[in-house]
Computed example of a mutant assay.
Amino acid sequence: MKTNASTFIAVSIAFALGQAAPVFAQQATSKDNGGLPTDTLAIVNGVAIPLARLGDAMRAARQPDTPDLRRLFKQELIAREVLRQGAEKQNYGMKPAVQEAVNASKAAAETELYLRDNIHPEPITDALVNARYHEIVGLMGDEEYKLRILSVGDDATASKVLERLRSGTAFDALVREYSIASSKEDGGEMPWVSFKTPATEGKTQGVPLAVAQAVTQLSAGGVTAAPIAVDNVRVIVKLEAKRATRVPTFDQMKGAIRQQLQVLALKNASAGFISAQMQRATIQQ
């Protein structure tokens, strides 16, 4: 079994901390931390660990902020600094693998900063948000649909899923087991959607036309009898519920619309900038 470097380090440190718990406890009681600067978590062999790193680690963990968890992360950060210093003393920083990682990290950071400084998306005005709201409302039909989507990569898997559905396995359970879509963790659940019928291309609120056409033929609780081909994916759809369309007010939608337009503007600006850079470059393939 292959283990990546970050996983190996994390597992090794977790094990070491468990073994070294008495040592940390002794250090904690024998050394007074009151002399540390307020912005310093700890000092290891004269090297300060910024307190901000603890906050970063806590936020990345997305766990409740508790004293025990803070102690655990503090110990891990100290252990990592001890190991880093050991590696430095033995000149690991000059090893090819380390230099390659440093170069890759540098390239990623400078590219991200370069894009941030040079990509200027179109400002999203209130008029644009209002126009998009009326466009969305104009595409709504008399009914709206609550869907669950299960996407797989081939017909054989789709047939297996349909067979298990017929045998009584819950749709959302099969989504979590088989689906390759981003909605997998939510059991394939999608937001309510409404479109005019009969469904026509480009007027289905982002739902693929073949899926929209199939949905209108289902009763609430029904599942498509056969997989629907959407590009290179096979889609199985369950209609959870349907109801008369409830048109949201502008105030209810304006925040989400503005965010969507901002994402689209950023994508368009990025594509234009990158395309221009590519055209000016001399590229041999």
Rank of each mutant, 00 (worst) to 15 (best):
M1S: 15
A5N: 12
S6W: 09
S6F: 09
F8M: 13
V11E: 15
S12V: 08
L17R: 07
A21D: 14
Q26P: 00
Q27Y: 13
K31W: 14
D32K: 08
N33C: 11
G34D: 06
L36N: 06
T38W: 08
A42Q: 06
I43R: 13
V44H: 08
V44C: 07
A48L: 05
I49R: 07
L51S: 13
R62W: 07
T66G: 06
P67S: 07
L69N: 09
L69V: 07
Q75P: 00
I78R: 00
A79Y: 10
A79F: 09
N91V: 11
Y92V: 00
Y92D: 01
M94G: 13
K95M: 12
P96T: 00
V98T: 04
Q99H: 00
Q99N: 02
N103G: 11
H120C: 04
P121G: 07
E122V: 08
P123K: 00
L128G: 08
A131P: 00
Y133M: 07
Y133T: 01
E135C: 01
G138L: 07
L139V: 09
E144K: 03
E144P: 04
E144T: 05
Y145L: 02
Y145I: 01
K146V: 05
R148F: 06
I149Y: 06
I149R: 11
V152W: 01
G153T: 07
G153I: 05
D154I: 08
D154K: 10
D155V: 13
D155F: 14
A156M: 12
A156L: 14
A156R: 14
T157N: 05
S159H: 13
S167Q: 15
G168N: 06
L174G: 01
R176L: 06
S179W: 00
S183A: 15
S183H: 08
D186E: 15
G187V: 02
E189Y: 11
M190R: 15
W192H: 02
S194T: 07
K196T: 09
K196M: 09
T200D: 08
Q205E: 14
G206D: 04
G206V: 03
A210W: 06
A210F: 03
Q213F: 07
T216N: 11
G221A: 04
V223D: 00
A225L: 12
A226V: 10
V230M: 05
D231R: 15
D231T: 09
V233N: 10
I236Q: 03
E240D: 14
K242E: 05
K242S: 13
V247K: 11
P248G: 03
T249A: 09
D251R: 11
D251H: 10
Q252R: 11
M253V: 04
K254D: 11
K254F: 06
G255D: 14
R258G: 11
L261E: 02
Q262G: 14
A271R: 14
M278F: 14
T282G: 09
I283S: 10
Q285G: 13
Q285M: 13
